[in-house]
Write a protein that binds this DNA or RNA. Structure first.
Lengths: 205, 205
DNA sequence: GGTCTTAACTTAACGCTGTTAAGTTTCTCT
DNA sequence: AGAGAAACTTAACAGCGTTAAGTTAAGACC
């Protein structure tokens, strides 16, 4: 069987990840398995375990790839140099279209959740693309608060509320096959407009 | 083995569902399986298939139970007789605490998703507790719009945006073990306040 | 009471799953 | 050429949802 032996461990890791990523995109998370992945790359299932501790590590790597791409997208938006609030709006809306463009990856990152990043404390200690992206986003919201374009409140809370809003749209879009959901991009637009509007002025009561 | 033979099919169905519900609450969705359920009720796995077509049907029944309870909760809130907007606010906030009080059921209903209600068309045709609850909620939002306490826009869209907002909070709370999430009840309160505030006044831009 | 039918239930199996211990092959280095 | 390490596989464990076929028990009819 064994046609090739791999000297370059890193290259083979990447090959496995590429195959896994495509399997996700094409067949979805539900149809992904270590055995199928092995068949796909032409090796026995056990070989994969020489390059990845377990299935979760593969999922973790795919998540990190996703966050890395998202991070780049966010940086691109910021460098367009629009106003703070406009930038935030674009980031939130782009987040949704980005997520809907990578539905299976989003599933892995947010809905399979065998705690790939460890504990919340681990998350904040280790330098991952996930953490980087989040902190960067949070700082953007904080800037909006201190610049007065959003009402002043704890930035962490506000950032998470805005995020859970768009995350909710994505979540509904991904997990809804039997419900007559309004077009997610419309929901996203109304959601972002509503939230930003709601936090722009002083809150009533 | 067989100590008992069941004359009352419906009673046995309920017995199975009760066991399933408790298994979900205690061990979580991930640790639920037909075989464990069978062991739990003291029968062979195949017996369950005499009372339920497959695993999905059990999930469907559990979902319906959940929606039935949620429906009752919503009715209770409405009968408190507060103002329209105040009622809507309470419904949204109660939705979150209800969901967080039944995390494993919520998981089944919204995140496992092998399309238990069929197609969106099926959802609207068949009289399920899920549909009943949704339509009732949508009507409440529509009332708010026509009474002028919320800005006038398509009620369906607005209803779904408000829902995806609180759903996002629940989704984040349930799928977050490795992220330092702000207290979900705080997020829910800020979310609802922000959204209702955002849709109360005329939207800017 | 004896037979017949049917409903209730089980056994055994199929083809999956993630993972591991142990065994084999191949390469590299001395 | 021989030793050691690296690469890879075979075979297995214990689990999963589901089904075809077989068994047991209860009720109906003569």
């Amino acid at each position: 069987m064994s046609e090739k032996r791999h000297k370059d461990k890193e290259a083979f890791r990447r090959e496995i990840l590429d195959a896994a990523r495509e399997m996700f995109s094409v067949d979805g998370y539900g149809n992904f398995s270590m055995r199928k992945l092995a068949r796909r790359i032409g090796y026995s299932p056990t070989t994969i375990y020489l390059y990845f501790r377990d299935k979760d590590e593969i999922l973790f790597c795919l998540c990190e790839e996703l966050y890395a791409e998202l991070y780049r997208v966010v940086l691109d938006i910021e460098q367009e140099g629009a106003g703070l609030l406009e930038t935030l709006r674009k980031v939130l809306l782009t987040y949704v279209s980005f997520a809907l463009a990578h539905p299976e990856h989003y599933r892995v990152a947010f809905f399979t959740n065998p705690s790939v990043y460890g504990s919340p404390a681990d998350f904040l200690q280790n330098d991952t693309m996930s953490r980087r992206t989040y902190l960067h986003y949070r700082d953007l919201v904080a800037e909006c608060c201190s610049a007065g374009v959003l009402c002043s409140m704890e930035a962490e809370t506000l950032a998470q509320v805005l995020w859970t809003g768009v995350h909710g749209v994505v979540s509904a879009a991904l997990h809804t096959r039997d419900f007559p959901l309004v077009d997610p991009s419309v929901l996203a637009e109304v959601m972002v407009e509503g939230l930003l509007n709601g936090f722009t002025f002083r809150r009533s009561v």
